[in-house]
Design a protein around this nucleic acid. Sequence first.
RNA 1: GCUGGGGUGGCCGAACGGUUCAGGCGGCGGCCUGCAGAGCCGCUAUAUGUGGGUUCAAUUCCCAUCCCCAGCUCCA
Length: 477
Amino acid sequence: MVPKLFNALTKQKEAFKPLKEGVVTMYNCGLTVYDYASIGNLRAYTFVDVLRRYLEFKGFTVKQVVNFTDVGHIFGDVDVGEDRIEAAAEREKKDPWAIAEFYIEAFLDDWRKMNFEEPMVRPRATEHIKDMIELVQKLIDKGYAYVVNGSVYYDVTKFKDYGKLSGNTVEKLKLGAGGRVEFNPEKRNQFDFALWINDPKHVMNWKSPWCEKGYPGWHIECSAMSVKYLGETLDIHTGGVDNLFPHHENEIAQSEAATGKRFVNYWLHNEHLLVEGQRMGRSLGNIYKLSDVVARGHEPKALRYLLLSTHYRQQLNFTWDGLVAAKNAIDRLVNFVRRLLDADGKGSGEEIKHLIERVRRDFEDAMDDDLNIGPALAALFDFVRDVNKLLDDNLLSKEEAGEVHRLMSKFDEVLGVIGEVKKEEKLSKEAEELIAKREEARKAKDWMTADKIRAQLKTMGIIIEDTPEGVQWRFAK
RNA sequence: GCUGGGGUGGCCGAACGGUUCAGGCGGCGGCCUGCAGAGCCGCUAUAUGUGGGUUCAAUUCCCAUCCCCAGCUCCA
């Protein structure tokens, strides 16, 4: 079946069809690297990663681009905002380049720990200044942009489709801004936005055709880099809902004005994360990072599960209890796969075939419906329970267990939380002897000695479990 | 102030107006086990913010109201 995705442009679920059959071009708005990524940022990339993995599960090749915004940008109005990277530079007494480099490295580390797949390319804004300047020049040449005092602005009244994504048409914006006192007098229209900013004081600055020392506007990098790596029309563009306006609206205005073509076919936005039911914010002191999660003794995979287990267009309530629940849910899956390795039963014939058929269908049907992860996971856990019953009754043959194992791995290509589960083989001589001694003690019903040895092995990092098939051991994580 | 999204059991979260309202986690009990672990079964569970309305039937539709979140206004 063809997956359906909720397109912010049309505000409805649409059958997903890439421009080129079998290949998906996807641009994911990246991080502004002035600080560590928050778990809110990580939610956005968890969504992106599951989306990518699911498209691959469906057989698509995904060409993914995730940028780094390593030029400081002024959030809010150009004249009154604060450049976050330069502010961080001042705070940490480093130059902005070092700030960006540092947080890029930190983010790449998070990326790996979260088990996100590596994108095709990770372009940085500072490495594409030339592309941006060319794009700005094109917009000037086509009459969409104008130069004032060495800065360049985009004239929103020239782009007739302005507001088609967010609904913020120029008329509506004017209505909303009734009480606004100050606005940049350089602009022709109040809602024009900067493409290039003339500012000799800006630490990161470049020479351009319009001024000696300036830097690019906030939105132009994504337009320039996406077209460079993925072409003039993208299949998918993602970001947090906060990017919908003005960022993505302005990207559309720039890109479509420059190319005359549709910029993006499917706009996908993830909802935000709440922390204990509250907004995550600096003033509330509840901005958590991956390192905070790890410092409290949780594995990144638990966070990954927690973040992916709620539908991406739904606000997700992050709680520390939820993280524990997530870890335990993963354990259930891992224990299940581990059990499969030892299965050597009679065989269940039709029954397991039906269970496999059902879980495949239910999982895929759910995910095809705009990545509806809830019912997909429910189907998976139903399957686990039903197969566990077969295992309890020794009704699963080695071959059947192998097939189930492969299926679980297939699902995990999307979820990325189980990982490789295999039988551990190497045990020290000492441990082997202890296990043998314990078996002797058990045979003699000397439980005291048996329990003592079990405790001793545990301190060596070896978990002992007695099963009807005999003693099992594994390394503690 | 305007616009949009949301409030579901102890917690997290599903659900196209209609079979007992998924699933996970937690707690309790049982089976299995020497014990533990894993697993299975049952209970927790007469859960849909509140008050009205429409309907044979409402978590779902309508109105009002409270709370949370976001965007715009404003500010950070």
